[in-house]
Design a protein around this nucleic acid. Structure first.
Length: 273
DNA sequence: GCCCAGGGAATCG
DNA sequence: CGATTCCATGGG
């Protein structure tokens, strides 16, 4: 990939069809990015980032080459060959439709703790409200990294002022958050160990947290641990399976079924019927 | 007002 | 085991 340094920006040569930020940042895998007239702005853990995109380039504003190579390149999954993946996906007619509908999706390699908390809050909830809840959580517990911008809170920050999750609009998920934070705090759950575990053991371990069932566990594994075999089944994917894959999702895609899932999820949510 | 949202726990059979 | 019910909240 061609990387150019210009002023304080990093510009990379990527087509919109390879990586489309508008879709990637708003397809329900992450919750802290906003689009504005110039591009996109978001916070990843404690790092603010501003991006813009033209047909054949993405610009990372106020970013050094070292920042890009050490963090953002991997975060945006630029080391995966999506062309090759999509070629395989297009052997399946349904996936082909989904890929043609929006080909620029990349899976973001998010922080595992942030993904865990975020997707626990996501259960039986809609995306705009999830974003609001997470923003309030960050504002109340996270470090202020710039004017009215807050880092995602750490375990310590969330457990210090415990039980004070009221009026964040979390509803009954409030007690799930408390259980999750305490299990991590007292080392009952060790996210670093989950990184090393075989996927089924990782699933089992995550599910010992109250409020983490099969779907949330697989979202955390896919988005927080980059386990591309994880296949979260939510209400939209249930529709896909029922409508298009009554005999099950093709076994040949198993190692990357999570990536396929994200194309299908976005297609189902945004297709014109 | 109603239905729904990137579901899961508790309960029941 | 699978099926049902309840859960808190607010967007559309």
């Amino acid at each position: 990939m061609e990387i150019t340094e210009k002023n304080n920006d990093i510009i990379i040569a990527v087509s919109k069809n390879d990586c489309n930020l508008a879709v990637t940042l708003d397809c329900g895998q992450c919750f802290r990015f906003k689009a504005d007239e110039n591009g996109f702005h978001g916070i990843v853990k404690d790092k603010p980032i501003t991006l813009s995109q033209s047909e054949n380039h993405i610009t990372f504003h106020n970013t050094t080459k070292a920042d890009f190579e050490n963090f953002w390149e991997s975060y945006f999954d630029f080391d995966t060959d999506y062309d090759e993946l999509k070629k395989q996906f297009c052997e399946d007619s349904v996936l082909k439709t989904a890929v043609e509908h929006s080909g620029g999706i990349h899976i973001l390699k998010q922080d595992s703790f942030e993904a865990l908390i975020s997707f626990m809050i996501s259960q039986n909830n809609n995306i705009p409200r999830i974003k609001g809840s997470i923003e309030r959580l960050c504002k109340r517990f996270g470090d202020e990294i710039s004017e009215n911008e807050y880092a995602f809170p750490t375990v310590e920050q969330l457990s210090d002022k415990k039980s004070d999750y009221a009026d964040l609009g979390l509803g009954y998920r409030e007690e799930y958050l408390a259980d999750c934070v305490s299990k991590i705090k007292n080392a009952e759950i060790d996210l670093k160990k989950i990184h090393e575990m075989p996927i089924d053991e990782a699933r089992k371990t995550l599910r010992t947290i109250k409020g983490v069932g099969p779907k949330v566990a697989d979202c955390v594994l896919l988005f927080g641990f980059y386990q591309t075999e994880a296949f979260p089944i939510d209400t939209w994917i249930k529709k896909v399976l029922k409508e298009f894959y009554p005999n099950g999702f093709p076994e040949k895609y198993k190692p990357v079924s999570g990536i396929a899932q994200q194309f299908l999820f976005h297609y189902m949510r945004t297709r014109q019927l």
